[in-house]
Computed example of a mutant assay.
Amino acid sequence: MHMRLVKLLLVLAGISTQCVFAQNYPARPIRLVVASSPGGASDILARTLAQKLTEQFGQQVVADNRPGASGVIGTDIVSKATPDGYTLLIIQPSLTINPSMIKKLPYDAIRDFAPVSLVVDAAQIMTANPSVPAKNVKDLIALAKTKPGQFMFGSPGLGTSPHLTAELFKLKAGVDIPQVLFKGSGMAYISLISGEISLAFSTVLSAMPHVKTGKIRALGVTTSKRVQVLPNVPTIAESGLPSFETSQWFGILAPAGTPRPIIDRLYQALSRASSSPDVKERLAAQGVEVVNRKSEEFAGVIKSETEQWAKVIKAAGIRPQ
Protein backbone atom coordinates (compact mmCIF):
# COMPACT_ATOMS: atom_id res chain seq x y z
CA MET A 1 0.00 0.00 0.00
CA HIS A 2 2.83 2.37 0.93
CA MET A 3 4.64 1.71 -2.38
CA ARG A 4 1.45 2.32 -4.37
CA LEU A 5 1.04 5.67 -2.65
CA VAL A 6 4.65 6.59 -3.42
CA LYS A 7 4.20 5.65 -7.09
CA LEU A 8 0.96 7.66 -7.30
CA LEU A 9 2.64 10.70 -5.78
CA LEU A 10 5.54 10.39 -8.22
CA VAL A 11 3.14 10.22 -11.18
CA LEU A 12 1.21 13.25 -9.91
CA ALA A 13 4.46 15.13 -9.35
CA GLY A 14 5.50 14.37 -12.94
CA ILE A 15 2.16 15.59 -14.30
CA SER A 16 2.39 18.72 -12.15
CA THR A 17 5.91 19.46 -13.43
CA GLN A 18 4.79 19.05 -17.05
CA CYS A 19 1.85 21.40 -16.49
CA VAL A 20 4.05 24.08 -14.93
CA PHE A 21 6.51 23.65 -17.83
CA ALA A 22 3.67 24.08 -20.32
CA GLN A 23 2.41 27.22 -18.56
CA ASN A 24 5.87 28.79 -18.92
CA TYR A 25 6.24 27.58 -22.51
CA PRO A 26 7.72 28.98 -24.64
CA ALA A 27 10.50 30.69 -22.70
CA ARG A 28 12.81 31.01 -25.71
CA PRO A 29 12.62 30.97 -29.55
CA ILE A 30 11.10 27.98 -31.36
CA ARG A 31 12.66 26.44 -34.46
CA LEU A 32 10.18 25.32 -37.13
CA VAL A 33 12.08 23.06 -39.54
CA VAL A 34 10.91 23.11 -43.17
CA ALA A 35 12.13 19.97 -44.97
CA SER A 36 12.05 21.68 -48.38
CA SER A 37 13.49 24.66 -50.24
CA PRO A 38 12.38 28.28 -49.75
CA GLY A 39 9.41 29.38 -51.83
CA GLY A 40 7.49 26.10 -51.88
CA ALA A 41 4.09 25.45 -50.31
CA SER A 42 5.55 24.12 -47.03
CA ASP A 43 7.83 27.12 -46.71
CA ILE A 44 5.08 29.67 -47.39
CA LEU A 45 2.72 28.04 -44.87
CA ALA A 46 5.52 27.69 -42.29
CA ARG A 47 6.38 31.39 -42.48
CA THR A 48 2.72 32.38 -42.28
CA LEU A 49 2.21 30.25 -39.16
CA ALA A 50 5.54 31.31 -37.64
CA GLN A 51 4.54 34.96 -37.84
CA LYS A 52 1.18 34.32 -36.17
CA LEU A 53 2.72 32.11 -33.45
CA THR A 54 5.37 34.73 -32.73
CA GLU A 55 2.60 37.27 -32.15
CA GLN A 56 0.80 34.88 -29.77
CA PHE A 57 3.80 33.62 -27.81
CA GLY A 58 5.87 36.77 -27.59
CA GLN A 59 8.80 34.56 -28.60
CA GLN A 60 10.30 34.22 -32.06
CA VAL A 61 9.19 31.21 -34.11
CA VAL A 62 11.79 30.85 -36.84
CA ALA A 63 11.29 28.87 -40.08
CA ASP A 64 14.49 26.93 -40.83
CA ASN A 65 14.75 25.40 -44.32
CA ARG A 66 16.57 22.05 -44.37
CA PRO A 67 15.83 20.60 -47.81
CA GLY A 68 17.20 17.47 -49.43
CA ALA A 69 16.61 13.76 -50.01
CA SER A 70 12.82 14.12 -50.51
CA GLY A 71 12.43 15.75 -47.10
CA VAL A 72 14.49 13.17 -45.21
CA ILE A 73 17.22 15.59 -44.04
CA GLY A 74 14.89 18.03 -42.31
CA THR A 75 12.65 15.28 -40.96
CA ASP A 76 15.62 13.44 -39.46
CA ILE A 77 16.81 16.59 -37.67
CA VAL A 78 13.50 16.85 -35.81
CA SER A 79 13.29 13.10 -35.07
CA LYS A 80 16.56 13.41 -33.12
CA ALA A 81 15.86 16.76 -31.43
CA THR A 82 15.25 17.19 -27.70
CA PRO A 83 11.50 16.64 -27.08
CA ASP A 84 10.88 19.94 -25.32
CA GLY A 85 8.70 21.78 -27.85
CA TYR A 86 11.48 24.01 -29.16
CA THR A 87 12.11 22.07 -32.38
CA LEU A 88 9.12 21.38 -34.62
CA LEU A 89 8.59 20.13 -38.18
CA ILE A 90 6.13 21.18 -40.86
CA ILE A 91 5.49 18.11 -43.00
CA GLN A 92 3.39 16.86 -45.91
CA PRO A 93 2.55 13.39 -47.30
CA SER A 94 6.22 12.67 -48.09
CA LEU A 95 6.32 11.51 -44.46
CA THR A 96 3.98 8.63 -45.32
CA ILE A 97 5.37 8.00 -48.82
CA ASN A 98 9.10 7.83 -48.04
CA PRO A 99 8.96 4.64 -45.91
CA SER A 100 8.00 2.72 -49.08
CA MET A 101 10.21 4.71 -51.48
CA ILE A 102 13.50 4.83 -49.55
CA LYS A 103 15.17 1.63 -48.39
CA LYS A 104 16.92 2.92 -45.27
CA LEU A 105 15.29 5.83 -43.49
CA PRO A 106 17.16 7.16 -40.45
CA TYR A 107 13.89 7.46 -38.51
CA ASP A 108 10.54 5.75 -38.07
CA ALA A 109 7.73 7.92 -39.45
CA ILE A 110 5.25 6.72 -36.81
CA ARG A 111 7.36 5.92 -33.74
CA ASP A 112 9.78 8.88 -33.72
CA PHE A 113 7.28 11.76 -33.81
CA ALA A 114 4.49 13.26 -31.74
CA PRO A 115 1.79 14.64 -34.05
CA VAL A 116 0.63 18.12 -33.03
CA SER A 117 -1.91 19.13 -35.67
CA LEU A 118 -2.87 18.41 -39.25
CA VAL A 119 -3.33 22.08 -40.07
CA VAL A 120 -4.59 22.22 -43.65
CA ASP A 121 -5.87 20.03 -46.48
CA ALA A 122 -4.87 21.04 -49.99
CA ALA A 123 -6.94 19.43 -52.72
CA GLN A 124 -5.34 18.07 -55.85
CA ILE A 125 -7.25 18.26 -59.09
CA MET A 126 -7.49 15.85 -62.00
CA THR A 127 -7.30 17.62 -65.35
CA ALA A 128 -7.43 16.51 -68.97
CA ASN A 129 -6.42 17.87 -72.33
CA PRO A 130 -9.62 19.06 -74.07
CA SER A 131 -9.09 16.46 -76.80
CA VAL A 132 -9.89 13.68 -74.31
CA PRO A 133 -13.56 12.81 -74.98
CA ALA A 134 -14.54 12.54 -71.32
CA LYS A 135 -16.51 15.22 -69.47
CA ASN A 136 -16.29 13.57 -66.05
CA VAL A 137 -14.50 10.81 -64.15
CA LYS A 138 -17.20 8.22 -64.90
CA ASP A 139 -16.76 8.80 -68.64
CA LEU A 140 -12.98 8.66 -68.33
CA ILE A 141 -13.01 5.32 -66.51
CA ALA A 142 -15.36 3.81 -69.11
CA LEU A 143 -13.23 5.19 -71.94
CA ALA A 144 -9.96 3.99 -70.42
CA LYS A 145 -11.35 0.50 -69.98
CA THR A 146 -12.27 0.28 -73.67
CA LYS A 147 -8.90 1.73 -74.73
CA PRO A 148 -6.29 0.45 -72.26
CA GLY A 149 -2.89 2.12 -72.52
CA GLN A 150 -4.08 4.78 -74.96
CA PHE A 151 -4.23 7.70 -72.52
CA MET A 152 -1.21 8.98 -70.56
CA PHE A 153 -0.82 10.58 -67.14
CA GLY A 154 1.96 13.13 -66.63
CA SER A 155 3.55 13.61 -63.20
CA PRO A 156 6.29 15.90 -61.83
CA GLY A 157 8.60 13.12 -60.67
CA LEU A 158 8.90 9.69 -59.09
CA GLY A 159 7.24 9.37 -55.69
CA THR A 160 5.62 12.81 -55.76
CA SER A 161 2.04 13.21 -54.54
CA PRO A 162 0.66 13.69 -58.10
CA HIS A 163 2.52 10.56 -59.26
CA LEU A 164 1.17 8.38 -56.48
CA THR A 165 -2.29 9.94 -56.59
CA ALA A 166 -2.48 8.88 -60.25
CA GLU A 167 -1.36 5.37 -59.30
CA LEU A 168 -4.02 5.27 -56.55
CA PHE A 169 -6.64 6.34 -59.09
CA LYS A 170 -5.57 3.62 -61.53
CA LEU A 171 -5.68 1.01 -58.77
CA LYS A 172 -9.14 1.97 -57.49
CA ALA A 173 -10.64 2.50 -60.95
CA GLY A 174 -9.06 -0.64 -62.45
CA VAL A 175 -7.71 1.17 -65.51
CA ASP A 176 -4.47 0.99 -67.48
CA ILE A 177 -3.17 4.54 -67.92
CA PRO A 178 0.64 4.69 -68.18
CA GLN A 179 2.58 7.58 -66.60
CA VAL A 180 5.23 9.87 -68.02
CA LEU A 181 7.50 11.29 -65.31
CA PHE A 182 8.77 14.83 -65.82
CA LYS A 183 11.29 16.92 -63.92
CA GLY A 184 8.81 19.25 -62.25
CA SER A 185 5.20 20.28 -62.77
CA GLY A 186 6.07 22.99 -65.32
CA MET A 187 7.13 20.49 -67.97
CA ALA A 188 4.13 18.28 -67.20
CA TYR A 189 1.77 21.20 -67.81
CA ILE A 190 3.41 22.13 -71.10
CA SER A 191 2.89 18.55 -72.30
CA LEU A 192 -0.69 18.42 -71.00
CA ILE A 193 -1.68 21.66 -72.73
CA SER A 194 0.01 20.60 -75.99
CA GLY A 195 -1.70 17.20 -75.93
CA GLU A 196 1.46 15.08 -75.62
CA ILE A 197 -0.07 13.62 -72.46
CA SER A 198 -3.77 13.24 -71.70
CA LEU A 199 -4.18 13.65 -67.96
CA ALA A 200 -2.54 15.01 -64.83
CA PHE A 201 -3.02 15.46 -61.11
CA SER A 202 -1.73 18.69 -59.58
CA THR A 203 -2.51 21.32 -56.97
CA VAL A 204 -5.63 23.37 -57.55
CA LEU A 205 -3.56 26.55 -57.44
CA SER A 206 -1.29 25.54 -60.32
CA ALA A 207 -4.15 24.19 -62.46
CA MET A 208 -6.62 27.03 -61.91
CA PRO A 209 -5.33 29.54 -64.52
CA HIS A 210 -5.29 26.88 -67.26
CA VAL A 211 -8.76 25.58 -66.29
CA LYS A 212 -10.27 29.06 -66.37
CA THR A 213 -8.83 29.79 -69.83
CA GLY A 214 -10.05 26.44 -71.18
CA LYS A 215 -6.55 25.13 -71.99
CA ILE A 216 -7.27 22.07 -69.85
CA ARG A 217 -10.48 20.53 -68.52
CA ALA A 218 -11.10 19.88 -64.81
CA LEU A 219 -12.58 16.45 -64.12
CA GLY A 220 -12.59 16.40 -60.32
CA VAL A 221 -10.86 17.28 -57.06
CA THR A 222 -9.37 14.64 -54.79
CA THR A 223 -10.82 15.79 -51.46
CA SER A 224 -14.15 14.79 -49.91
CA LYS A 225 -15.62 18.26 -50.52
CA ARG A 226 -15.55 20.67 -53.46
CA VAL A 227 -13.09 23.55 -53.20
CA GLN A 228 -14.25 27.13 -52.75
CA VAL A 229 -12.27 28.58 -55.67
CA LEU A 230 -13.69 26.07 -58.21
CA PRO A 231 -17.19 25.34 -56.88
CA ASN A 232 -18.44 23.90 -60.18
CA VAL A 233 -15.76 21.19 -60.25
CA PRO A 234 -17.08 18.03 -58.55
CA THR A 235 -15.12 15.72 -56.31
CA ILE A 236 -13.77 12.59 -57.96
CA ALA A 237 -15.93 10.59 -55.54
CA GLU A 238 -19.16 12.24 -56.76
CA SER A 239 -18.01 12.28 -60.37
CA GLY A 240 -17.56 8.53 -60.81
CA LEU A 241 -15.25 6.89 -58.25
CA PRO A 242 -17.05 6.85 -54.86
CA SER A 243 -14.18 5.35 -52.86
CA PHE A 244 -11.61 7.93 -53.90
CA GLU A 245 -10.22 10.54 -51.50
CA THR A 246 -6.75 11.93 -50.85
CA SER A 247 -5.14 15.31 -50.26
CA GLN A 248 -1.87 17.19 -50.08
CA TRP A 249 -2.09 17.92 -46.36
CA PHE A 250 0.35 19.88 -44.21
CA GLY A 251 0.85 19.31 -40.50
CA ILE A 252 3.12 19.98 -37.54
CA LEU A 253 5.12 17.31 -35.73
CA ALA A 254 7.25 17.38 -32.59
CA PRO A 255 9.84 14.78 -31.54
CA ALA A 256 8.43 11.70 -29.79
CA GLY A 257 8.34 12.17 -26.03
CA THR A 258 7.29 15.82 -26.13
CA PRO A 259 5.10 16.38 -23.01
CA ARG A 260 1.37 16.28 -23.71
CA PRO A 261 0.70 19.72 -22.16
CA ILE A 262 3.19 21.20 -24.68
CA ILE A 263 1.45 19.39 -27.56
CA ASP A 264 -1.90 20.76 -26.38
CA ARG A 265 -0.56 24.30 -26.03
CA LEU A 266 0.91 24.16 -29.53
CA TYR A 267 -2.32 22.76 -30.97
CA GLN A 268 -4.37 25.59 -29.47
CA ALA A 269 -1.91 28.22 -30.75
CA LEU A 270 -1.81 26.67 -34.24
CA SER A 271 -5.61 26.55 -34.37
CA ARG A 272 -5.83 30.24 -33.57
CA ALA A 273 -3.06 31.09 -36.05
CA SER A 274 -4.52 29.17 -38.98
CA SER A 275 -8.10 30.20 -38.25
CA SER A 276 -7.45 33.93 -38.31
CA PRO A 277 -9.57 35.50 -41.09
CA ASP A 278 -6.63 36.78 -43.17
CA VAL A 279 -4.90 33.38 -43.17
CA LYS A 280 -8.10 31.45 -43.98
CA GLU A 281 -8.94 33.82 -46.82
CA ARG A 282 -5.42 33.61 -48.30
CA LEU A 283 -5.41 29.80 -48.14
CA ALA A 284 -8.96 29.41 -49.51
CA ALA A 285 -7.94 31.39 -52.60
CA GLN A 286 -5.33 28.69 -53.23
CA GLY A 287 -7.74 25.77 -52.82
CA VAL A 288 -6.49 25.04 -49.31
CA GLU A 289 -8.86 24.32 -46.39
CA VAL A 290 -7.97 24.87 -42.73
CA VAL A 291 -8.94 21.71 -40.82
CA ASN A 292 -6.89 21.71 -37.57
CA ARG A 293 -7.18 18.00 -36.86
CA LYS A 294 -6.02 17.07 -33.37
CA SER A 295 -3.01 14.94 -32.43
CA GLU A 296 -4.87 11.61 -32.35
CA GLU A 297 -6.61 12.24 -35.68
CA PHE A 298 -3.31 13.26 -37.29
CA ALA A 299 -1.66 10.11 -35.93
CA GLY A 300 -4.44 8.07 -37.55
CA VAL A 301 -3.90 9.80 -40.90
CA ILE A 302 -0.16 9.10 -40.76
CA LYS A 303 -0.72 5.43 -39.97
CA SER A 304 -3.46 4.83 -42.57
CA GLU A 305 -1.65 6.72 -45.35
CA THR A 306 1.63 4.94 -44.66
CA GLU A 307 -0.23 1.66 -45.21
CA GLN A 308 -2.14 3.01 -48.23
CA TRP A 309 0.95 4.28 -50.08
CA ALA A 310 2.82 1.06 -49.35
CA LYS A 311 0.06 -0.87 -51.16
CA VAL A 312 -0.06 1.61 -54.06
CA ILE A 313 3.72 1.64 -54.52
CA LYS A 314 3.86 -2.17 -54.46
CA ALA A 315 0.96 -2.48 -56.93
CA ALA A 316 2.64 0.03 -59.26
CA GLY A 317 5.85 -2.02 -59.24
CA ILE A 318 7.91 0.90 -57.93
CA ARG A 319 11.13 -0.24 -56.30
CA PRO A 320 12.51 1.55 -53.23
CA GLN A 321 15.73 3.44 -53.92
Rank of each mutant, 00 (worst) to 15 (best):
L8P: 02
I15G: 00
C19F: 00
F21D: 01
A27V: 05
R31T: 11
V34N: 08
V34F: 09
A35H: 15
G40T: 11
A41H: 03
S42Y: 13
L49P: 03
A50E: 09
A50M: 12
L53D: 02
E55I: 00
Q56G: 01
A63Q: 09
D64F: 15
G68V: 04
S70K: 15
T75K: 09
K80N: 10
T82P: 01
P83S: 04
D84L: 09
L88T: 01
P93D: 10
P93S: 13
S94P: 03
N98H: 05
P99V: 02
M101I: 06
Y107V: 02
R111I: 09
F113V: 00
S117R: 05
L118G: 02
Q124G: 14
Q124C: 14
T127I: 12
N129L: 08
N129I: 03
P130Y: 07
V132D: 12
P133A: 07
A134N: 11
K135H: 14
K135P: 06
V137E: 11
V137Y: 07
I141P: 10
L143E: 13
L143W: 13
T146F: 05
T146V: 05
Q150S: 08
G159R: 10
L164V: 08
L164A: 09
E167C: 02
K170V: 03
L171C: 00
K172Q: 15
Q179E: 11
K183F: 03
S185G: 05
I190T: 13
I190Y: 10
I197F: 03
L199N: 07
F201L: 12
S202D: 09
M208V: 02
M208H: 02
H210V: 01
H210D: 01
K212D: 02
G214V: 06
K215C: 00
R217N: 14
V227K: 11
Q228T: 12
Q228I: 05
N232D: 15
P234Y: 07
E238C: 09
G240V: 14
P242F: 05
S243M: 13
E245R: 10
Q248Y: 15
G251E: 10
L253T: 06
A254H: 06
R260W: 13
D264Y: 04
A269R: 10
A269S: 14
L270E: 04
L270Y: 07
S276R: 12
Q286D: 04
Q286E: 14
V288S: 05
E289F: 08
V290I: 04
S295L: 03
S295G: 00
E297C: 00
F298R: 08
V301R: 11
I302W: 04
T306I: 11
E307I: 14
Q308V: 04
V312I: 15
K314G: 04
A315C: 07
P320K: 03
Q321T: 12
